[in-house]
Structure formats: structure tokens, C-alpha cells
Amino acid sequence: MQSIKVADYYNHRPVTFKADMSIESAVEKLLQSCQTGGPVVDDLGTVIGFVSEQDCLQQMLNSTYQNEAHCVIGDVMTKEPLCVTPEHSVMTLAENMKIDKPKMYPVCDEQGKLMGVITRAHILLALDKHLHDNYAPGKRFV
């Protein structure tokens, strides 16, 4: 099971954000993509943060109460997101996701460049596929 790698299951084309993007624009992207969050990247594609629906929701509530709507992603993003590599173990990531950890992780190369994202749904798919492959009818165990 440890040999199941993130590389085989992550989303190669996630929705991304820029630090100077308005919260309102980010919310529109999230709603259109059905993603619950996403990596914030610089002009070179390096992950510099992560923004979630929860981050946006909190800021939009604050803006509503204050009747003011000028805030950008850089103001609310998590500045040191937890990234994984394509070689990371799906099992290890599944263990991390059981606890109060992110539901989505950026997948990055060694230089921190974004390659994609992996979510709990991707992890469930990997585990489900592995279980079905191991317990397929006619499969013999030695």
C-alpha cells in the first residue's frame, strides 16, 4: 500500500490564485470550479500560499459587516502551505488527512513549482481502486 503514489491520482490542472487577486474574484473562481480552495502562485508558478473557501467566507463576512469590500488573497491566504511531491505516499497523506489537516494539498516539484493538487476525494479514489484491485473476483492470494 505504501507504493501508491500521489503522482497517479492528483489533479494536474487545478484552479490557482494570485496574491493580488480580489476576494470576490477568487470566490467566483472557486464557485465555478467546485474546488474548496487552491494554491496561490507567483508569476513563476511557485506556490506562495493557499486560500480556502473558509478564508474567503470569513473575509466576506467581515467586509459585509464593515460595508467595505477591498481585500486581496494575499491578506487572507495561508502563507506556508503544506506541499507534497508526486512521489509522496498516498497512505501517509491519508493518515495526515484523518486529523484536522488540510483537505487539499498542493503537489510541487523540488523547487516549489506547482504541479497540481490532491484532495481527499483523490485519496479515497486511490484507496478504493487499490481495494478493488486486491479483491477482484478470481484473484488468488498466496
Rank of each mutant, 00 (worst) to 15 (best):
Q35S: 08
N67Y: 14
P137Y: 13
L93G: 00
E95S: 12
M1T: 12
C56V: 07
E53H: 11
L114F: 07
S89M: 07
Y65H: 11
D128F: 09
D100A: 15
V117Q: 06
S25L: 02
L44M: 10
Y10C: 03
V117L: 11
K18Y: 11
M21D: 05
T16P: 03
I23G: 01
A121P: 02
V72I: 15
D109V: 12
K101G: 12
D20C: 03
T46E: 14
P137R: 12
M21G: 02
L57G: 09
A94F: 07
P86S: 13
T119I: 01
A126G: 05
L131A: 11
K129S: 08
T119K: 02
Q35A: 06
P14K: 06
I118A: 02
M1W: 04
E28F: 00
P137C: 07
K101T: 15
K103R: 15
Q111E: 15
V72G: 07
Y10R: 01
A94T: 11
K5Y: 03
H88S: 14
H122N: 15
V27N: 00
I123R: 06
A121Q: 12
P86L: 12
E28G: 03
P102R: 14
S52D: 06
I118T: 01
I73E: 04
V6Q: 11
L125H: 10
E53Q: 12
K139L: 15
R13F: 06
I118M: 01
T46I: 13
L30G: 00
L131K: 08
L131I: 08
D109C: 09
K18Q: 11
L44A: 14
G112D: 08
Q35Y: 09
N67C: 14
G37Y: 03
T64R: 13
Q54A: 07
K103S: 14
A69L: 13
I23M: 02
C34F: 08
L124Q: 09
V6L: 07
G49Y: 03
T119V: 04
P102V: 11
